[in-house]
């Protein structure tokens, strides 16, 4: 599917950047005139993906997070969140609801929330190399209601 527009950014894996990342993705999506609900879905899914990079991939030690937001010709938004962190040995297990490897008030719902608020979620990972999460969401929008 042809890309209409694309935005790329690289941010430090610091928790203070979580709000910035979800706001940028929501602002990028705004050109497709999404509904308030759709904007909320995007912000929530992106927040989970970025938090995973900080907490799990880089274990709060810092690193870089690479985000690409693309708007496709069929009004689909595709957001790719990539890290060069520790990677996930068992992606299927990591995606199970409530599964978490850290304590400290983490709910283990990150991937479940991403799945719930997107149309399609793809996770690719290699131990020691990093993880790529692709969130896809069709924006039906106000104008097309």
């Amino acid at each position: 599917m042809k890309k209409i527009n694309e935005c790329r950014m690289t941010v430090d894996a610091k928790s203070v950047n979580e709000g910035f990342c979800r706001a940028v993705c929501a602002a990028f999506a705004a050109q497709a005139e999404p509904t308030v609900e759709e904007i909320g879905d995007i912000k929530t899914a992106v927040s989970e993906a970025v938090t995973n990079c900080i907490v799990h991939a880089y274990r709060e030690m810092g690193g870089k997070i690479y985000i690409t937001a693309s708007l496709l010709a069929d009004q689909r938004l595709r957001i790719t969140v990539r890290d060069r962190g520790c990677g996930i040995a068992d992606v299927k297990q990591a995606m199970e609801p409530l599964f978490t490897t850290v304590g400290d008030d983490r709910s283990g719902l990150g991937f479940s929330v991403m799945e719930t608020f997107s149309d399609k979620l793809t996770v690719r990972s290699k131990v020691g190399k990093g993880t790529t999460v692709i969130i896809e969401k069709k924006l039906r929008g106000r104008a097309r209601d």
Binding site: G19, K43, T44, S47, E48, T51, D104, R106, S107, V113
Partner: peptide, 13 residues
């Protein structure tokens, strides 16, 4: 104005 799964962890804790 915004909450992700961190809110769940917060309430659980």
């Amino acid at each position: 104005s915004f909450m992700d799964s961190s809110g769940v962890g917060l309430v659980m804790g």
